[in-house]
Design a protein around this nucleic acid. Structure first.
Length: 425
DNA sequence: TCTGGGGTCCTAGGACCC
DNA sequence: TCTGGGGTCCTAGGACCC
C-alpha cells in the first residue's frame, strides 16, 4: 500500500507574476500562449469572470476591457526559476519526489513517520508560501489518480485549508468520487468524457464501478489503468528519475504567414539549432530527424497544405552541421510554392545517450564533431544563446513570435531584478 | 486582425522486403 | 494470375497530459 501526495501550485503563472508585483494581488490576471494568442493561465479572479482556459484572447476581449483584466505574455524564465525554488523546498521535506510538471510534484509519504499527514502537509504548504511566495494545494491518496482528485477538491474548498487526505478513508473517498465529474479525472480528456457521459457514466464514482471488459474495449489498457487507480490499485509508481526523452521538438506558429522560401528555411534552421541544443544539453544524440511545414488551418479561405518527412542518420548524431543540413534537405523536398505558411517545426527522434553510440565506418558525422560542438555550446553558455552558430539563421524575421505584454525576468537577469524603494521621509 | 508548445502512448494503412 | 505469413519503415492520426 502506498501513499502519494500531489502538490500543485495554485494558478501557477498568475501567482508567479504576483510575487514581485504585489499590486497584482486580488486583480484578475491572464497569461497568454506564445504569439499572445490564447489564454493559458488565469488567476482565480479571472476564472470567476468566466474566462475559459485556452480561449483565444480576441474572444474574451470584451471581458478584459470591461473588468480591467491584466494581460501578460508568458515569461518562462520567471516561471521556470520559481518552479525550481518550490521544488527544492519540497525535495528537502520529502524522502522521494517526482517533479511531474512545472507546477506539480508527487511526493512519497510512505516512509514519512508522521502521525498526522494532514498537519504535516499544512506545515509544508505554509513553508512553500513563506519561502517562495507561491501558494500550493496538496491532495493525498493511495494512488496518483486519487491524490490528483483529492488535490482538485482541496483547491476548491475553503474548509480543508489547502490539504485533503483521502488515504485510508473509504467514506470520504466515495464522497469525493461522487462529486467529481468524470471529465475531471486525471487521464480522462474531452473525447472520453463525452463518450462516457453518453453511456451514463457521469461521475468518477460511476467510472470506478464500470465493468473492466467494457472499459478495456472502449478505452484500451490506458483507460483501464485509470479505473484501477480510482479503485485504489496503484498502477503508476513514483518516477523519481526523469525518463530520458525519446523525442524533442521545436516548433512555432509564425507571428504572420510567410510565403517566402528563404524565410521559412531560416525558421527551420533556427528550430533545428534550438532542438540540437536541447539534446546536447541532455547529452543525447538523435537517430532520426523530422521536419514539418503547414499553412494556417484556421484560415478557411486560404489554400491548405501540410506535410512532413523524416530522415534517418547512419550514425546517431548531435552535430549541428549534419542535422541542420538534413533539416534543409527535407525542407526543400517538402516546400511547395504558392502557399502562405503559418507553422513549422523540427523533431529529433530516436534519441539515445551519447555515451553508448557505436562509431561506424560509414558515419555521416563530420570530423572533430564533439570538440567543436562542445566549444560552440560553451561560447553560447557564456555569452548568451545565439552568440555563435552556423551563419544561416536570420536574427530578425517576420516569423518571430509576438510578446507584447512581457513582465521582467525578475530572478534570472541582473538588470531586471525587482527594486525595493524605501521612503525615508 | 487575433486560435500555443512540448511531450507520451497507441493504432492503422500502405509500400516494400524476404 | 493467384496464393501467404512475417517483418520493417514511413506517414498519419487519435487519445491523453501539462
Amino acid at each position: 500500500m502506498s501513499t502519494f501526495a500531489l502538490v500543485d501550485c495554485n494558478n501557477f503563472y498568475a501567482s508567479c507574476e504576483r510575487v514581485f508585483r504585489p499590486h497584482l494581488v486580488n486583480r484578475p490576471i491572464v497569461v497568454l500562449s506564445n504569439n499572445d494568442g490564447c489564454v493559458v493561465a488565469r488567476s482565480h479572479e479571472a476564472k470567476v469572470l468566466g474566462i475559459a482556459m485556452g480561449v483565444p484572447l480576441f474572444q474574451v476581449r470584451h471581458i478584459v476591457e470591461q473588468y480591467g483584466v491584466v494581460v501578460l505574455s508568458s515569461n518562462y524564465a520567471l516561471y521556470g526559476d520559481l518552479s525550481e525554488r518550490v521544488t527544492s523546498v519540497l525535495a528537502a521535506a520529502a524522502p522521494r519526489i517526482e517533479v511531474y510538471s512545472i507546477d506539480e510534484s508527487f511526493l512519497d509519504l510512505d516512509r514519512l513517520a508522521v502521525p498526522d499527514l494532514t498537519a504535516w502537509c499544512r506545515d509544508l504548504r505554509t513553508r512553500v508560501l513563506r519561502w517562495t511566495g507561491i501558494p500550493v494545494s496538496i491532495g493525498i491518496g493511495p494512488t496518483k489518480t486519487l491524490a490528483k482528485l483529492a488535490n482538485r477538491i482541496a483547491k476548491g474548498s475553503q474548509r480543508v485549508e489547502g490539504v485533503l487526505d483521502l488515504s485510508g478513508n473509504p467514506a470520504w473517498t466515495e464522497a469525493a468520487l461522487r462529486k467529481t465529474a468524470v471529465g475531471d479525472v486525471w487521464g480522462i480528456g474531452f473525447r472520453w468524457s463525452k463518450m462516457l457521459v453518453n453511456h451514463g457514466i457521469g461521475t468518477a464514482l460511476d467510472l470506478r464501478d464500470a465493468p473492466d471488459m467494457w472499459i478495456r474495449r472502449r478505452m484500451g489498457v490506458v483507460g483501464l489503468r485509470t479505473v484501477h487507480e480510482l479503485r485504489g490499485i496503484a498502477c503508476h509508481d513514483l518516477e523519481t528519475e526523469p525518463a530520458p526523452k525519446q523525442t524533442t521538438c521545436c516548433s512555432r506558429t509564425f507571428g504572420e504567414a510567410v510565403t517566402d522560401n528563404v524565410q521559412v528555411r531560416d525558421a527551420i534552421v533556427a528550430f533545428a539549432t534550438r532542438a540540437i541544443e536541447k539534446i546536447r544539453t541532455a547529452n543525447q544524440v538523435c537517430g532520426t530527424i523530422q521536419v514539418f511545414i503547414a499553412t494556417d488551418r484556421f484560415d478557411t479561405a486560404a489554400q491548405q497544405y501540410a506535410s512532413s518527412a523524416t530522415c534517418a542518420f547512419m550514425t546517431p548524431t548531435a552535430d549541428s552541421r549534419s542535422i541542420v543540413a538534413a533539416a534543409i534537405r527535407i525542407f526543400e523536398r517538402l516546400w511547395r510554392d504558392g502557399f502562405a505558411y503559418r507553422k513549422a517545426g523540427v523533431l529529433l527522434l530516436d534519441l539515445s545517450s551519447a555515451k553508448n553510440i557505436v562509431p561506424s565506418l560509414f558515419t555521416d558525422e563530420p570530423p572533430q564533431s564533439r570538440p567543436l560542438m562542445k566549444a560552440i555550446d560553451q561560447v553560447n553558455a557564456r555569452f548568451g544563446r545565439g552568440s555563435i552558430g552556423l551563419g544561416l539563421s536570420a536574427r530578425a524575421a517576420p516569423w518571430r513570435m509576438r510578446q507584447e505584454h512581457l513582465s521582467p525576468r525578475f530572478t534570472t537577469r541582473w538588470h531586471e531584478l525587482p527594486v525595493a524603494r524605501i521612503d525615508l521621509d
